[in-house]
Design a binder for these strands. Structure first.
Length: 889
RNA sequence: GGGCGGAUAGCUCAGGUGGGAGAGCGUCGGCCUUACAAGCCGAAGGUCACAGGUUCAAGUCCUGUUCCGCCUACCA
């Protein structure tokens, strides 16, 4: 059965994924005696579809899980999705809008039912896409944040925190999105620098005179209840305690003194709007000021806004500015650049808004979470993110968790209509816990989606029940995520995990980069610069995409992805495929299915490739242990392409194409199979599909690569001495090819070669390995001479002490070209030599540098000297020829 | 305002603990050499942002400067 010339991903991916599922390789057995290795997936939004960020995130997780599984761990990769409150509600509302309906038209119950229906129908999309990516998740354990079990965990956590005084309800300024009509946490506000204006407004004083205030939001003046100045500000000393008259409304407002006010900004007088600015609110509290709401939930002016009632807040700004310009209240307007908060979901300008909300008291929770990282119980990788984590945790503010939407976990609090008391319960109560009245009503709000995500590492494993899953798989081994949700999610999981499980949720946190386009821009649909992972999978195959992402995933740096890069990974797949094709063509008589080392004395190429393999196994394993995905992938790429394919497969062709020495042929086949087997195993976590397809076709032991053992470096015999011999032969081959190339001769044209060495042992070695030089160097006659006069009419090169000559008669006889070539080489050598000699003539270097470094430099100098001598000798010979060749004129 | 990261070949980027400047793509020259033209062979190309310092030795450590990017922040 011969393989097609080109690897076709479509023909294999679906087949093997189904096979793996049928064999239940991804299923984690809680009763397994093996050491556990667990990861919980960062649950994608149920509304989501796979983008490059997901592809990267899940490729890296799958690499880790598949690798650890092969190492013999009991692996659990727990998948699932997030109900994504606002996002999902928005999606369904948009769908309703097409029917001309609002959610209010349906009513809450009907709307929520509709969201569930939407979820059942479309919510599985991203899960399906993860499967196409090859993710080896335990699908039997798939979870959704609104599942019954997880909802129970949410209620349990809420009630416990409430009872511990860590959740409270209060009237504070929060961030409000007038479009989504809900409160947002501080983190859900995106600050953007914008060109705005600074308006200077004149407020008359009750007893004559005036005070001028500066503001970026003149419309909020309608809610002003004071003007504040710095107590140390001499200019306003006499104003404090007196009254200003608010224009338009004519309200009397006091001038107060507060340290918060910066006398150097604006006019040094600050208008105070306690209901629409967080700091004004604080000042208001300090001074017992009234808070007047002039903007409502939808961003429209309230009745308190007098003549401006009903206007949109921005319309009002426009109108009030015009009016003030007319009546002289407006002193001046300056252009002013400042940062404005926007809703992270819909982009609407956020309104600071006074309302009653639920909050988590975070400081007591943050402390253990800080300590856990300080003590190394959780490692953050790369470590520079630790600092970011600490900074945020140490300056953490209380977390507003109530949302005025319908899709999410309903807050388990009931209010009594009779006594006004609050009843917080795990199960729906019959009556008020304070007065036993039956007239109770549940809070209409739901919880921030991140509240349930914060419980993900233990709620998915069955908490609050004491399950075996929890016992075995918590804490999880590693969390793989992007830095954009370090605060949103990672920090909060740390807090909740420590508080409710008494242990960290994960041993390691690996933080990977963001995927950007070639210009370094974040990919976004609106910019139109997205590279769709599914499209790439269609075009180049899943393995090519995965390999690309892994090889680009260097720590601490964003990934700039281009389709070209995926294309070259596709080429790598094809290279591997053709190596398999070649191997299969030469294994038709291979006995059995065994994977064994060669018997007796292996050939030089065998010993060399085994030595290289041993090194590669060590390197790849070490890189994976350190989360250096790019280095592991790079090492594999180099080994497979530039060691195994470029050299080994070429070197063994003469052994495979002959039948005179059956033992040699068999040994070669064994090594070929052995090395191929190991490299497929190492490649499998990165490229699961093509490796399985090839492995299954080659002689192999076992049912599937998924559960095949990870290679161990110690099992592979190394032979450094043989390796060095091989490298010398390879050096000679390269020298011959170089001469041919530089002298402009076709690589397939046969030439004769003379090798001249000083050392008898080396001479014997080269004679022994003449076969390789002949076949890879396209050499006809090969002569190895020990010293003696070098040939004259020949091009020369020096490779590891061996002088390589190709007679001019075999090339295009062009002594001038040869002279130029030699000169170029000599220049390089002289330059290097000068550098080394300068070092060696420095007494400080000889005295202070370690002995082995000095020794190395001396050796280098000697080698270069020798090289120089030989090159200069050649140059003389060639110049002699050129002068003879000079046509008489 | 504070903090973090980056500046290395034409492009995109690797270069844990200081001692050899590297990869992919692109470029140039030559090849359908019975695994692969999505390939093979060969080559060119870099004062490692700038200025100092530490050291026998700096892409790598320290200080400063410039230019990008990101996070974060209560100066309306």
């Amino acid at each position: 059965m011969e393989l097609p010339k080109v690897y076709d991903p479509k023909a294999v991916e679906e087949k093997w994924y189904q096979f793996w599922l049928e064999k239940r390789y991804f299923h984690a057995d809680v009763d397994s005696p093996k050491e556990p290795f667990s990861i919980v997936i960062p649950p994608p939004n149920v509304t989501g579809s796979l983008h490059m960020g997901h592809a990267l995130n899940n490729t890296l997780q799958d690499v880790l899980v598949r690798w650890r599984r092969m190492q013999g761990y009991n692996c659990l990769w727990l998948p699932g999705t997030d109900h994504a409150g606002i996002a999902t509600q928005n999606v369904v509302e948009r769908e309703l809008a097409k029917e001309g309906l609002r959610r209010q038209d349906l009513g809450r119950d009907e709307f929520v039912k509709r969201v569930w229906r939407w979820k059942e129908k479309y919510g599985g999309v991203i899960i399906h896409q993860l499967k196409r990516l090859g993710a080896s998740c335990d699908w039997d354990r798939e979870r959704f944040t609104m599942d019954e079990g997880l909802s129970q965990a949410v209620r349990e956590v809420f009630v416990r925190l409430y009872e511990e005084g860590l959740i409270y309800r209060g009237n504070y300024i929060i961030n409000w999105c007038p479009r989504c009509r809900t409160a947002l946490s501080d983190l859900e506000v995106e600050h953007r620098e914008e060109e705005g204006h600074l308006y200077y407004l004149r407020y008359p004083m009750e007893e004559g005179g005036e005070i001028v205030v500066a503001t970026t939001r003149p419309e909020t003046m309608l809610g002003d209840t004071a003007v504040a100045v710095n107590p140390a500000d001499e200019r306003y000393k006499d104003y404090v305690g007196r009254w200003a008259i608010l224009p338009v409304l004519g309200r009397k407002i006091p001038v107060i003194a507060d340290d918060y006010v910066d006398p150097d900004f604006g006019t040094g007088a600050l208008k105070i709007t306690p209901a629409h600015d967080p700091y004004d609110f604080e000042i208001g509290q300090r001074h017992g000021l009234q808070a007047v709401k002039v903007i409502d939930e939808e961003g429209r002016m309230t009745d308190e806004a007098g003549p401006y009632r009903g206007l949109d807040r921005f319309e009002c700004r426009q109108r009030i500015t015009e009016d003030f310009e007319r009546d002289g209240t407006l002193v001046k307007v300056e252009p002013y650049r400042h940062s404005v908060g926007h809703c992270y979901r819909c982009g609407t300008v956020v309104e600071p808004f006074l309302s009653v909300q639920w909050f988590v008291r975070t400081k007591p929770l943050a402390k253990p979470a800080i300590e856990a990282v300080k003590e190394g119980r959780t490692r953050i990788i790369p470590p520079q993110w630790e600092k970011v984590y600490f900074e945020w945790m140490e300056s953490i503010r209380d977390w507003c968790i109530s949302r005025q939407i319908w899709w999410g976990h309903r807050i388990p609090a009931w209010y009594c209509k009779d006594c006004g008391g609050v009843t917080v319960r795990r199960e729906t109560p019959e009556s008020c816990s304070h007065c036993s009245s039956k007239a109770i009503e549940q809070d209409g709000d739901v919880l921030d989606t991140w509240f349930s995500s914060a419980l993900w590492p233990f709620s998915t494993l069955g908490w609050p029940s004491k399950t075996k899953d929890l016992e075995v798989f918590y804490p999880t081994s590693v969390l793989v995520t992007g830095f954009d949700i370090l605060f949103f999610w990672v920090a909060r999981m740390m807090m909740m995990g420590l508080h409710f499980m008494g242990d960290v949720p994960f041993r390691d946190v690996y933080i990977h980069a963001l995927v950007r386009d070639m210009e370094g821009q974040k990919m976004s649909k609106t910019k139109g610069n997205v590279i769709d992972p599914l499209e790439m999978i269609e075009r180049y195959g899943t393995d090519a995409l995965r390999f690309t992402l892994a090889v680009l995933a260097a720590q601490g740096r964003d990934i700039r992805l281009s389709e070209q890069r995926i294309e070259s990974s596709r080429n790598f797949c094809n290279k591997l495929w053709n190596a398999a094709r070649f191997s299969l063509m030469n294994l038709t008589d291979y006995p059995g299915d065994g994977v064994e080392l060669p018997e007796g004395e292996p050939s030089l190429p065998d010993r060399w490739i085994l030595t290289e393999l041993r090194g590669a196994i060590g390197e790849v394993t070490r890189a994976l242990e350190e989360y250096r995905f790019n280095e592991a992938a790079q090492a594999l790429y180099h080994f497979v392409w530039h060691r195994f394919c470029d050299w080994y497969l070429e070197l063994i062709k003469p052994f495979l194409y002959q039948r005179e020495d059956p033992q040699l042929r068999l040994n070669t086949q064994r090594t070929l199979v052995y090395v191929f087997d190991k490299l497929l195993k190492m490649l499998h976590p990165f490229m699961p599909f093509i490796t399985e397809e090839i492995w299954q076709r080659l002689p192999h032991v076992g049912e599937s690569l998924v559960v095949a053992p990870w290679p161990e470096a110690e099992d592979v015999p190394a032979d450094e001495a043989a390796s060095r011999k091989m490298e010398r032969v390879m050096g000679v081959i390269t020298a011959v090819r170089n001469i041919r190339g530089e002298m402009g001769v076709s690589p397939t044209r046969r030439v004769n070669v003379i090798l001249r060495v000083e050392d008898e042992e080396v001479a014997g070695e080269l004679r022994q390995n003449a076969l390789f030089i002949r076949s890879l160097g396209f050499v006809d006659g090969l002569q190895v001479v020990l010293g003696g006069a070098p040939p004259e009419a020949a091009a020369a090169a020096i490779a590891q002490g061996v002088e390589v000559f190709v007679p001019f008669k075999d090339l295009v006889p062009d002594p001038q070209r040869e002279e130029a070539r030699l000169l170029k080489e000599l220049r390089k050598v002289l330059q290097e030599l000068e550098f080394v000699q300068r070092k060696l003539s420095n007494r400080a270097f000889l005295e202070r540098a370690p002995r082995e470094v000095v020794l190395k430099e001396r050796q280098k100098a000697a080698e270069l000297e020798e090289l120089r001598g030989k090159l200069e000798g050649r140059l003389r010979v060639v110049r002699e020829l050129t002068s003879h060749d000079e046509p008489p004129c």
